[in-house]
Design a protein around this nucleic acid. Structure first.
Length: 549
DNA sequence: AAAAAAC
């Protein structure tokens, strides 16, 4: 079997690899590294979690080992779609370049130009960037890309989704055509294909199966949620979330909670905090410094709940996330796979629980069609099952204990159209802010667009878990995207159009060790198996409550 | 429909 030591890597690089705890390259690494070292272009079709990052950082470090950077002329360039991903690449680079003298600069938005400029001026070997900030530097005349010998495009399909392709093409055109190109994408959409045909030259193509498919190491479930009253929908949904979290108990050491909208990310994070849960938000409207801090805290186990937009859905490498909660059904079915892929990583068990509002049902169908599997239904832990009565006209007296204090009126007061941002919140525009102010008269000043008014949701009851307990074991394996040891046979590509077929191969047992122990539970995935150990009590309860009402 | 990314 191939070892890193068989790959012709420099001794300094090998030493760093060894210290990071790795011995055997993943398939993408074993395929890409030799080709890259040979000077070939590489087209890697792989997702995060396959060791992709190291598959380009390692050969880059090796190749750049000789020579020195000149001012304003970086010798290599890595492009990533989000700031966090770029930062992740930078860390990876630090890990493996520690015994070299190579220099790098991280060019991302949201932080000052100054330091970035200073580094560029001195000359860097590696530039790691998001496209916008890179072009900004370029347009200011601070940067020359004519010295780029190696260019990497990471997560190209996501770049496509985010509309970065024109930028990418432009950046390509600023680099010498003699450059070597390493190009990575999880899928080969037609547009991606076109780019690779244009900018890659006779690439070595390496395809790697996505890591364990959704059904394998991740236990999934969905709660069909219907509000008792429309105007309470938002706060009840948050309450369902808390109940779901509580039901998981200590098994939920940490979790990412995904919302579709940034506003809701803020609201949910505030609400959880208010109720004694250790939670913080992350999305693209927050200060970069806060994004960084929050993510770091979460990685280190100091923060238990990360409430996130899809900025965190893909690529982020956080080892040991025990749970993913989808507060909303993602509007893009494929995002579901990315989101829940944040858990069940590196061979651990993971649990993914989603809340599906009536308005999300169509999206749920799309998700289930995509994953070719029905997601097991979980009863609403609050007992108001959707099936109970579809029409449910406002029924004042029935809501659960705590929400009782809410003044019924809070809703009608729309906030003035100050913030365009919340104006489009679709089905229930009135609820983002007002609903949440329990004691407050209807006059709650219009919460600014990021809903600071989350006072809903009763009093703290869940014991705020000390973050200490959540601390994951130190995971030396984090760097290389993870689990380098795992390997699995390459298989068919997964372009958008054939994702479905992709799934059919999901059973391949090539993914050895990932799951031990509790996988019996997951085995039966397609049947409605329970969500674990706590279910029975609230099933019973929900029936009673249905009878009662 | 929303998110992300440049100031």
């Amino acid at each position: 079997m191939t070892k890193f030591s068989d790959l012709n890597l420099d001794a300094k690089v090998l030493k760093a690899i060894e210290e990071a705890g790795y011995e055997t390259p993943t398939p993408i690494q074993a395929g890409a590294i030799p080709a890259a070292l040979d000077g070939r272009d590489v087209l890697g079709i792989a997702q995060t979690g396959t060791g992709k990052t190291a598959s380009f950082t390692l050969p880059m470090i090796n190749m750049l080992g000789r020579g020195r950077a000149r001012a304003r002329m970086p010798r290599s360039l890595v492009l990533a779609p989000t700031r966090e991903l770029a930062a992740q690449v930078a860390e990876n680079f630090d890990t493996y370049a520690k015994y070299t003298k190579l220099t790098k600069a991280l060019l991302i938005g949201g932080v000052s130009f100054k330091e970035q400029d200073a580094l560029i001026d001195k000359g860097v070997d590696v530039l790691i960037a998001t496209p916008g900030r890179l072009l900004d530097h370029f347009e200011r005349g601070k940067l020359l890309l004519t010295g780029v010998q190696v260019m990497v495009v990471d997560e190209a399909d996501r770049m496509l989704d985010m509309g970065f392709i024109p930028d990418i093409e432009r950046i390509f055109s600023l680099t010498p055509f003699t450059r070597q190109t390493l190009f990575f994408s999880a899928t080969m959409a037609p547009e991606i294909e076109r780019i690779t045909n244009t900018f890659l030259s006779n690439p070595e193509k390496i395809e790697v199966a996505r890591q364990a498919t959704a059904s394998e190491t991740i236990t999934q479930g969905v709660v069909m949620f219907r509000a008792s009253r429309k105007d309470r929908s938002a706060s009840e949904k948050r309450k369902v979330l808390r109940a779901l979290i509580d039901a998981e108990g200590d098994a939920c050491s940490n979790a990412i909670i995904f919302c579709n909208r940034k506003v809701d990310v803020d609201v949910v994070a505030k609400s959880l905090t208010k109720n004694g849960y250790d939670a913080a938000p992350i999305h693209g409207d927050l200060e970069q410094s806060q994004r960084t801090r929050t993510l770091e805290g979460f990685r280190e186990g100091k923060l238990r709940f990360l409430v996130a937009s899809d900025v965190a859905a893909r690529g982020l490498d956080v080892p040991a996330v025990s749970h993913v909660f989808n507060f909303d059904v993602p509007g893009h079915a494929e995002d579901y796979v990315h989101r829940i892929g944040r858990t069940g990583r590196a061979g651990r068990d993971g649990k993914a629980i989603m809340i599906c509002s009536t308005s999300d049902e169509k999206n749920l169908e799309d998700v289930e069609r995509l994953i070719e599997k029905e997601i097991p239904r979980i009863d609403n832990p609050l007992g108001q099952s959707a099936a109970a009565d579809p029409e449910a006209p406002a029924r004042p007296a029935e809501e659960s204990p705590e929400s009782g204090e809410q003044p019924k009126r809070t809703r009608s007061r729309r906030k003035p159209k100050d913030s365009a941002s919340s104006a489009r919140s679709g089905e229930a525009p009135s609820e983002t802010a007002p609903v949440d102010a329990p004691g407050a008269p209807a006059e709650t000043p219009p919460a600014t667009e990021t809903a600071q008014g989350v006072q809903d949701d009763a009093a703290p009851k869940a014991p705020a878990r000390e973050t200490a307990e959540a601390a994951p074991e130190p995971a030396p394996a984090a760097q290389a995207d993870e689990a380098p040891e795992q390997k699995r046979p390459a298989r068919g590509k997964g372009s958008r159009s054939d994702r479905g077929r992709d799934k059919s191969q999901g059973q391949q047992s090539g993914n050895e060790q990932p799951r031990q122990g509790r996988n019996d539970r997951q085995r039966g995935g397609e049947v409605v198996v329970g969500m674990g150990d706590h279910l029975p009590s609230f099933i019973a309860k929900s029936f009673e409550e249905r009878q009662a009402s």
